Amino acid sequence: MTMLGFDADDTLWHNERFFTLTQARFAELMGDFAGRDHLEDRLLAAERRNIGRYGFGVKGFTLSMIETAIEVSEARVSATVIAELLEAGREMLAHPIELLPHVETTITTLAASYKLVLITKGDLLDQERKLAQSGLGPCFQAVEVVSEKTPEIYTRIFDRHGMGARQGIMVGNSMKSDILPMLEAGGRAIHIPDRGVTWALDHAETPASHPRLLTLESMENLAEALHKFALE
């Protein structure tokens, strides 16, 4: 049975838009100290700097907002604003899950013919919460929450749950995290680009062409395309 790896955030359900809304709130709260563009640049720099310390996800993002607020204000930011940033982070951790179009039907259909494994970055508790709320949990035979997605990680996961990366397929919205490392590991990948906002640190160039890469507009035709792709 072919193993399919699925990314979670912005592949199965909405995620990045909540970060975008919270970032706008951050700019509003810090408007007395700097303009929005400058705040966004400083926050992005903090996120880049802190990924190695805090990892991916809401908690690291919240800490980066607080760190940026202190730095930009030269430690003059009020405790009230810090409290509001903490509350914004808590709200992100509690937001309801909204599946992307065609996801529920497609995942349910594929689970009958393929071995599905969820491979996602982020905070373990938050990812487990989102999967539970999504109702998709029973469709996945395994869940892997990793600190980073690299060729070595994909090799290890597809060896553990399948017949190796070369016999597996990874499906995701992020060219940088979901697609390129899987191709480098020797596997196949299906890219379903996020039509919303893409995190600045997740940008990567799309290969002009690749024999093991397929791009789809949405999940709607994944089952049919996957069958043909897997047989090539």
Rank of each mutant, 00 (worst) to 15 (best):
G31T: 09
G196R: 02
P138H: 12
E224N: 07
N221P: 00
L29P: 01
A165C: 12
L116Y: 07
N50C: 09
H227Q: 14
A45C: 06
S73L: 01
G172Y: 04
L201I: 12
T198W: 02
D10Q: 11
D9Q: 08
I153W: 07
V171N: 04
F229R: 03
D32A: 15
S134H: 06
D178V: 11
A45N: 03
K130W: 05
T106L: 04
L39G: 11
L93Y: 01
L29K: 03
V117L: 07
F19C: 10
W13Q: 12
F158Q: 05
E47R: 02
A223I: 06
R166L: 09
M170Q: 13
G196Q: 03
Y114H: 15
H14G: 00
T11N: 09
R129N: 13
H95R: 12
P151E: 11
M219F: 14
T120W: 06
T68F: 01
E232A: 10
A208N: 10
E91K: 12
E87D: 14
I66S: 04
G164K: 04
G35H: 05
G187N: 09
E71G: 00
L180D: 05
A208W: 00
I51V: 13
T80D: 15
L93G: 13
D159L: 05
E16H: 03
P193F: 11
A230G: 12
E16M: 12
T108Y: 00
W199N: 05
I192R: 01
D10Y: 05
L43S: 09
Q133C: 12
M182I: 04
R212I: 00
D178G: 03
V117R: 07
A132V: 13
I119Y: 08
T105H: 13
Q133V: 02
M30P: 08
E16C: 01
D7A: 12
G162K: 04
E84I: 01
Q167E: 15
Y114V: 09
T206D: 06
R156P: 00
E47W: 02
E98R: 15
S73M: 00
E91R: 14
S177V: 07
A204N: 02
Q167M: 06
V171R: 05
R76K: 15
E224K: 07
E84P: 00
H210A: 10
R160L: 11
G162P: 04
S209F: 10
T108I: 07
T206Q: 13
Y114D: 09
R129F: 11
G162F: 07
G35Y: 07
G137H: 11
